[in-house]
Design a protein around this nucleic acid. Structure first.
Length: 498
RNA sequence: GGCGACAUAGCCAAGUGGUAAGGCCGAGGUCUGCAAAACCUCUAUCCCCAGUUCGAUUCUGGGUGUCGCCUCCA
């Protein structure tokens, strides 16, 4: 059973899919007018994990994410650079994918764009006008009338009267009510415009997400998500328009999930405040998986403070898990090449069996805990803690193996492979250890590197055996500078990329 | 002014009506020629006050503090 925190009711609820074994998700995408920052990335990484988890559970997942490619800020950017709006949106859609690919975010099933959904948007506005929920002004603007909607405010939990309309921005006095919002904006000179029953213009913010989600997921779908700042007004308005148009207050999204903000010095990171770090910038110093891991080590609804120290710390923690991953791969390689099972170890057989057996028992138990954590509103922070626990014992087993303290038997090979499978299962839900070249990599290049390192290491071993520590350490230091770490173990020297 | 969230070790962060996961840092240890890595051991009574309860960090009320939304914003 999966529990999810539904913003609509401000509590955790049992998730019941509309269709058995299927999940439909709409996550508000970006307005492509500048490069994505790490705060923008959070919802997409969060939903990526949710999708992976549902898939793992056997659900058929349909995930839609839009691009709001017709927008004031895009037009402003285009004017500033004296290029077309299309050039701006294309550029930053590309930037979006580049950043998300680096974070191992799988692509949505569909990325609808406003510019390609115009007829549907217009027809939805027409429906709202026809039903009396919207009104047109002389200049061609069309507004949604909140006074016609008795349910308005149900998501954000506020009443129209309570809101300080115009507190921070001037109220457009042509509106019937200060909270009314634009469905269609009449075109000003030199603005991109589309034909409509109200003259040339473009859609207001909010209507595009209503139209696209309904178009691709139907009148009812399971999840709608995005950042907490979208609760009001964006999602509130989406609900209002959609349910008014459909005429059913139970239509539209059934569960509303909102992620907390990324902060800088405890203050919300935002493009307008200028206190943001782009994904691209962070990627210059840290791998995408580390950034992803950073995002997932905190529950998605909690605020998350970003800083260089924090991400550095995450890198170290990530390395620990990575080490276990490497060790499991090493053991798998030993097993595949037949070197794993040691003969002549019969007298330690009893100990051996219980050691590997205990490890798989732990792994199975942790996997079950991992799932419990995920079932509880996708608690990745807790789930990850179980990966650390498993890693600890995996590393201990590896140490014993490499130290020649245990003599595995045939049955242990299966057990270790099973432990590895469980670890990889966890990693694949969290979405890490994917962009890492596999140990069994067979390219000509990597074979050459293997060969070269073999030579270098053997030279160093010669130095070591003649107690020429200066030379041995120099080789180790130089390799380290080049990003290759040597480890002297009782089983010989191992190397890996830093 | 309205609405809402949060407050857990030096730092970050889960969580539960019956004395608290995990990570980072720190100390000691095992291993090593030295190292690195790994592993082992150690480090909290959960903002304050009152109430409910046999028992509260976890529930209720009040207070203090921080943050967010009510403009564009993930």
């Amino acid at each position: 059973m999966i529990f999810v925190y539904n913003t609509m009711n401000r509590q955790k609820e049992i998730f019941k899919p509309l269709k058995k074994n299927e999940v439909s998700i709409y996550c508000c995408g970006v307005t492509p007018y500048n490069p994505p920052h790490i705060g923008n990335a959070r919802p997409f990484v969060t939903w990526d994990v949710i999708r992976r988890y549902f898939s793992k559970l056997g659900y058929k997942v349909r995930y839609i994410q839009n691009f709001t490619d017709v927008d004031d800020k895009i037009i402003a950017a285009a004017n500033r650079e004296e290029v077309t709006w299309k050039e701006i949106s294309d550029r930053y859609i590309k930037a979006y994918f580049k950043a998300m690919d680096a974070l191992n975010v799988r692509h949505a099933d569909l990325y609808p764009k406003v510019s390609e959904t115009m007829p549907d948007i217009i027809s939805m506005i027409e429906t709202l006008v026809d039903k009396g929920f919207a009104y047109q002004l002389d200049n061609g603007d069309v507004f949604y009338s909140v006074e016609k909607d008795e349910h308005y405010g149900k998501l954000s939990g506020r009443k129209v009267e309570d809101m300080q309309a115009g507190a921070r921005v001037e109220v457009d006095d042509r509106k019937r009510h200060p909270m009314d919002f634009a469905l269609w904006k009449a075109a000003k000179p030199d603005e991109p415009a589309w034909d409509s029953p109200w003259g040339k213009g473009r859609p207001g913010w909010h209507i595009e997400c209503s139209t696209m989600s309904l178009k691709y997921l139907g009148e009812k779908f399971d999840f709608h998500g995005g950042g907490a700042d979208l609760i009001f007004p964006h999602h509130e308005n989406e609900i209002a328009q959609s349910q008014a148009a459909i005429g059913d207050e139970n239509s539209f999204a059934q569960y509303w999930l909102h992620n907390g903000f990324i902060t800088i010095n405890q203050e919300k990171m935002s493009k307008s405040a200028g206190n943001f770090f782009t994904v691209e910038d962070i990627l210059k110093k840290y791998p995408g998986e580390v950034i992803r891991f950073f995002l997932l080590q905190t529950h998605y609804r909690s605020p998350l403070d970003f800083s260089e120290d924090r991400i550095k710390e995450t890198q170290i923690a990530y390395n620990r898990l990575k080490h276990a991953f490497d060790n499991l791969n090493y053991l798998a390689k030993e097993i595949e090449s037949g070197k794993f099972v040691k003969s002549g170890g019969e007298k330690s057989a009893m100990i051996t069996v219980s050691q590997a057996g205990g490890l798989v028992e732990l792994a199975e138990r942790l996997m079950s805990s991992f799932e419990d954590a995920m079932n509880d509103d996708f608690n990745t922070a807790l789930a990850i803690s179980y990966m650390f626990e498993l890693s600890r014992d995996v590393n201990a087993y590896y140490n014993d193996y490499i130290g020649g303290k245990i003599f595995p038997r045939g049955a242990d090979a299966f057990i270790i492979m099973r432990v590895r499978e469980i670890f990889l299962d966890m990693a694949s839900i969290i979405g890490i250890f994917e962009n890492i070249s596999d140990v069994e990599e067979n390219s000509a290049n990597s074979k050459l590197v293997d060969k070269l390192l073999e030579i270098i290491i053997s030279i160093r071993q010669d130095a070591r055996s003649s107690k020429n520590w200066a030379a041995a350490d120099k080789i180790r230091d130089e390799l380290k500078n080049a990003g290759i770490v040597l480890e002297d173990t009782p089983q010989g020297v191992k190397w890996k990329k830093a």
